[in-house]
Design a protein around this nucleic acid. Structure first.
Lengths: 100, 100
DNA sequence: TTGTTATTTTGATGTTTGTCGAAATATCGA
DNA sequence: TCGATATTTCGACAAACATCAAAATAACAA
């Protein structure tokens, strides 16, 4: 979980996630969207992958990155615990464990 | 918002938040709960305060810290946007804007 | 195999960060 | 005011981090 928060602490990495939200992208396409070099982006992607926030799959010469939304649930749980009100919905219909 | 993520990227600061969830504490009480010195804890508290994650109020010689849960809502919104399913509940009864 | 494209790894550099001890600031009680 | 307690600020330092240019790796095409 520490890796997740560390990964989210950098603005570039958060914008990479927001970009991947729009659709899967190759490492090169992601790099083009930022004013930093490809090695730097590659490094950010490695950190995001280590945190399990993204997945990667080779497709020919390219490597396609995509969001891995499963980890976001853990993140949400952590925030909910702090906030006190234990809503923590898994979907739009209500909580997974109501607290009353 | 960047300050929030930066603040959450350190394990000690996250544990401070979890400690304050149990109840308000003075800076000294917080420092006692961690194996690092008081100046370090004071620094962490300053970052948490700059991120608006905690509030502080002087009470005699002590300064009492408490959670400021309002910022967590922004944090939740950010995660929800990424996750795709726009549930984003403000309470236990459902979303603030259903997406269908 | 040779050359081209896509991506990562390496080595180096400047910046930021977490921590410390010591000093400074603030409040209270005698 | 003086002394004790509580907290923060200062100055310094080592570790971690983001970035770069250059080299290395991997897949494809000719």
């Amino acid at each position: 979980m520490n890796e997740v928060f560390k990964a989210l602490s950098d603005p570039t990495r958060r914008r990479i996630l927001e970009l991947l939200k729009e659709g899967n992208r190759s490492a090169g396409q992601i790099a083009e969207a930022f004013p930093i070099g490809k090695p730097a982006v590659s490094h950010h992607l490695a950190l995001l992958k280590a945190a399990d926030l993204v997945q990667s799959e080779r497709e020919g010469q390219s490597i396609i990155y995509s969001l891995n939304t499963t980890v976001f649930q853990e993140l949400l749980s952590w925030v909910y615990k702090l906030r006190g009100t234990e809503a923590e919905p898994g979907n739009a219909f209500g909580g997974t464990h109501e607290t009353r």
